[in-house]
Amino acid sequence: MKSVLEVDGLTKSYPGASRPAAADVSFKMAEGSALGLVGESGSGKSTTARMIAGLEKPDKGWVVLGGRQIDGLSRRAMQRVRRDMQVVFQDPYSSLNPRMNVEQLVGEGLLVHSIETDRAARRREVERLLGLVGLGHVDLGAYPRSFSGGQRQRLAIARALAVRPKLLICDEPVSSLDVSVQAQVLNLLRDLQSELGLSILFIAHDLAVVRYLCDQVVVMSDGRVVEKGSREQVYGDPQHEYTRDLLAAVPVPDPSHSRRSVTEEK
């Protein structure tokens, strides 16, 4: 199967840190798949995502997007590559420019990548995108401050999807949202994935969320990949002790099913 993303040996150290934030991270992602990159905070999952997104320069290793190596590109070349790869950030309260309205925010990608230079056509496309993320009713002139967290994250998703990327990187896109809203945004991402054939790289610390959305899972701990495989493999038969601990820590919503405790196991 063709791979949309390949990372190999990605390593990043920050000055003053005792260990690299990410060390020798490698995995492949098939086109149209959803890969969950999980781990606790400090595990290096966000650093890895930032290196893939070209927001952080890796010390070592490479990133291949759709068959083309994209790490170390010039700023201008990278700018063009971003049409194929978009990012949805964790906190929709700070990731949307407060001085831009809905039409400008969602339409910006169409404008800067010269996809739709005609204003009226761009507006129609913005309306279509808003409908796609369930915000068909909103006022195009409204500013982010008048939206709730879930609505803002939908705006951010519409903004990212406007350029029709091959890969969508979601960096903990629901962890700052209410639990009830989390499900809505996750459902939206899942629908979009099947409707648009989108590949999603999903960064999360919540294993339940990843299980729901992703068919491939990569587990990271202390900057290293400790386990990778299909959802069934990782959840059904975890090989690494860290994965087992992580799975045991997930609350089980079924009251008849008693929760396994990490301490009991040891």
């Binding site: 070209g54 971003r82 949307l96 420019n97 831009m100 910006e108 951010a156 903004r159």
Partner: peptide, 20 residues
């Protein structure tokens, strides 16, 4: 700020990034 990084990730060029 994160919205500036988000604009970079979208592919906004330097001039527009600063002006807008």
């Amino acid at each position: 700020s994160e919205f500036v990084e988000s604009a970079v990730a979208l592919g906004v060029g330097r001039r527009r990034l600063i002006l807008r």
